[in-house]
Write a protein that binds this DNA or RNA. Structure first.
Lengths: 198, 198
DNA sequence: ATAATACTTGGAACGCGTTCTATATTAATG
DNA sequence: CATTAATATAGAACGCGTTCCAAGTATTAT
């Protein structure tokens, strides 16, 4: 301990506050004008700081974009929950959620790109959290639905991950290769569900 | 007809030749130094023309990258075929192919990004072919394998598309969200296959 | 006050994809 | 030959993400 002289480092609270402040402005721009409109120079102007300052708090643009994930995922979860209200049976509920999931990403290709096509595939800094608790919850909702269908044993974790990644794959294909005559996404989703429900 | 004066448009053969010439150089750079190394200015230098000229033949960078797909997919198909040599039963062959598919994209994240994460999600020019006959063949191989498993009716087209997009989804998740504790990719692939094989 | 440390700032710079414009260059017709 | 249309070229420009650096500002212990 025994601080030497000089300005002390910012408290963790301050750091988080600044980060979320930048994230808030990024979200504003994204909602108003979409993905392309978010630029570091512009974001800095919106926040009211120098472009350089942002780099002191974030590793880069992708690191900022992660702040928008939660927002999009919340929107998606809301969509699913809304449609889920009027569905009763366990397997029907799982199916409804899956179809809503697909529909959401097909209806919002820009959101899909934001969440699933962030372009820093290269570096996998395990240190950063990437998927926080809250972000995760939006996906684990499928676990609950699967558990309702299979109250017995069954490897819920694996079924969930398979379903999620499978669904994301369908959405990716529809988004990135729209010219290929894919089978009906609804049919594909049902087919995918077969491996979980049966 | 009755041509007016002036230089005639290039023949289709010439156009294709120029395009493939650019594609060839792009592939060279990609193989030698990877994705990031491909830039329009540098590519022009390699081809021996002005950067502007490329834009007369391609819509943009993404349009060029498509030329590299075939190469990557051929490589992948080779990988699958190689491992498939020593596998006998119909369903075993399908499983082998699926696992090889996943393994390939996990082992080559840069290739995955090149093929499945081209960033022009926005515009869907139906006019451009996007997936040529040859490119397509690498995916339709799964159709044959599925048909071997199910000689009867069964909607092969839909099963194939579901399997392909599901596999791509698993690969995408492993590549873009490496920090999330996904279930074992092998297990997920098997789970995915359940919906097709049964 | 002074010195030491942490952080912010402004500006320049690099290479990028892309667009624009004005100026060749090429190859056909008349 | 000249004319005319198709193409290629050079160069500048825009905004982008990102990096570097020198200078400034803020906050603390001494």
């Amino acid at each position: 301990m025994a601080r030497t002289a000089g300005r002390p480092p910012r408290s963790k609270a301050e750091i988080l506050e600044f980060r979320s402040k930048i994230g808030k402005h990024a979200l504003e721009i994204y909602r108003a004008e979409g993905f392309e409109a978010i630029s570091m120079r512009r974001l800095a102007k919106a926040v009211g700081c120098a472009p350089m300052t942002i780099y002191a708090h974030f590793d880069g643009k992708t690191d900022i974009l992660r702040y928008l994930w939660a927002d999009v995922l919340t929107d998606m979860s809301g969509d699913i929950a809304e449609k889920l209200k009027s569905v009763a049976g366990p397997s029907e509920r799982l199916q409804s959620a899956a179809h809503s999931f697909i529909a959401y990403w097909i209806d919002h290709p820009d959101h899909f790109r934001l969440v699933f096509m962030s372009n820093d595939v290269t570096r996998a800094d395990v240190s950063t959290f990437v998927m926080g608790e809250d972000t995760l919850a939006h996906f684990l909702m499928f676990s609950d639905l699967i558990r309702e269908v299979h109250p017995e044993e069954h490897d819920v974790k694996m079924s969930t991950d398979t379903l999620i990644s499978g669904l994301i794959g369908i959405a990716l294909c529809m988004n990135t290769m729209p010219d290929y005559p894919w089978a009906d996404p609804t049919s594909m989703t049902n087919q995918l569900l077969l491996s979980i429900i049966t």
